[in-house]
């Protein structure tokens, strides 16, 4: 029994980088949902692509500058997706918007596959190379750096939303676009800000997650699905909920393989998460559809 618990501790520690990355992705998904009422399916690609940019730039300008470059690229990418696809489809329908973001996802992956191929690569890390052992597993500084920088960023963004004018404006515009507009807030700008923040967070998480695990166009882009589940658990509208959801999702992934039988099968964590997501959506389904209906009538 004691061994089981030490296994749990080890697995939980091993999932910390995932929790960190999911936190950053789920926060970004929440920002975007609040600002544009769109579930950004391209979010995984918006994490994956900057990771490749950082990988590509590291050779010429060094790790730190490459990281900064990837962050800037992530922000620009977020803005570009909002301007070219999401905003243009706002008049069409939520269906069109969703398909549009799915199209961006496919496009970014296709471009990454075309130029970098599908063989997994080792990505450079901005954190020092050391590692230490927990039980019989190794934890790198990158893993820890990912986890703690995610927590730090989450706190930072919560503070921005709570205490700055920009945060107030963003919350206003998210709640009621028209009213915010009448109050002198340009909802287009707050929306753009949300996408830029989300893009930078996605880039941050993507670069670090690539360094912690591997750099691969599909694997990295799909790592955002657990973050979707996390955002759904958090209720999609709440930043703190997104952080909490990321912890639940990360721990699920860490703990499920410890259970014998089915838990040891390949893909069991994914099945568990998928079922979790279906349950969450079923329970909250009515609320979501009501929110959607009211959103569509309010605009």
């Amino acid at each position: 029994m004691g061994e089981f618990f030490s296994d749990i501790v080890v697995n939980v520690i091993l999932t910390t980088p995932l929790i960190g990355a999911y936190t950053m992705f789920a926060l970004g998904i929440t920002f975007i949902y609040r600002a544009s009422k769109v579930l950004n399916l391209a979010h995984g690609a918006m994490a994956m692509f900057p990771a490749y940019i950082a990988y590509q730039l590291t050779g010429s300008i060094g790790v730190v500058l490459a990281f900064v470059g990837a962050l800037l690229f992530g922000g620009a990418l977020g803005l570009a997706v909002e301007r070219t696809v999401v905003r243009r489809l706002r008049q069409a329908s939520p269906t069109a918007q969703t398909v549009g973001t799915a199209g961006v996802l496919g496009m970014l992956i296709a471009v990454a596959v075309r130029f970098w191929g599908t063989s997994p690569r080792r990505a450079p890390s901005i954190f020092p190379d050391g590692k230490f052992s927990v039980g019989n597993s190794l934890v790198t500084y990158t893993d820890l750096g990912l986890f703690f920088s995610a927590l730090g960023l989450a706190v930072l963004f919560l503070a921005i939303f709570k205490y700055t004018d920009l945060g107030l404006a963003m919350r206003c515009a998210a709640d009621n676009r028209r009213a915010a507009w009448l109050m002198g807030i340009d909802p287009d700008r707050t929306t753009a800000a949300a996408w830029i923040f989300a893009g930078m967070l996605a880039a941050f998480g993507g670069v670090l997650l690539a360094a912690s695990t591997i750099l691969h166009p599909y694997v990295l882009a799909l790592q955002v699905l657990p973050a979707f589940v996390a955002a759904l658990i958090g209720g999609l509208e709440s930043e703190t909920g997104a952080v909490g959801g990321s912890f639940i999702v990360g721990l699920t992934i860490g703990i499920v393989p410890l259970f014998g039988g089915i838990g040891e099968e390949v893909g069991a964590p994914q099945v568990a998460l998928g079922l979790l997501a279906f349950v969450v959506m079923s329970v909250r389904g009515r609320r979501f559809s009501v929110a959607e209906a009211s959103a569509s009538t309010a605009l």
Binding site: L225, G267, A277, E292
Partner: peptide, 29 residues
């Protein structure tokens, strides 16, 4: 049956997760 409870955006995610489960579990068994 899942889709009965969710609409639009969430259904898209549900189908995506479904494909993900199939890919991770069913198609690797």
């Amino acid at each position: 049956i899942v889709a009965l409870r969710v609409r639009g955006l969430y259904l898209a995610v549900a189908t995506l997760i479904f494909a993900w489960i199939c890919d991770a579990y069913l198609f690797s068994s």
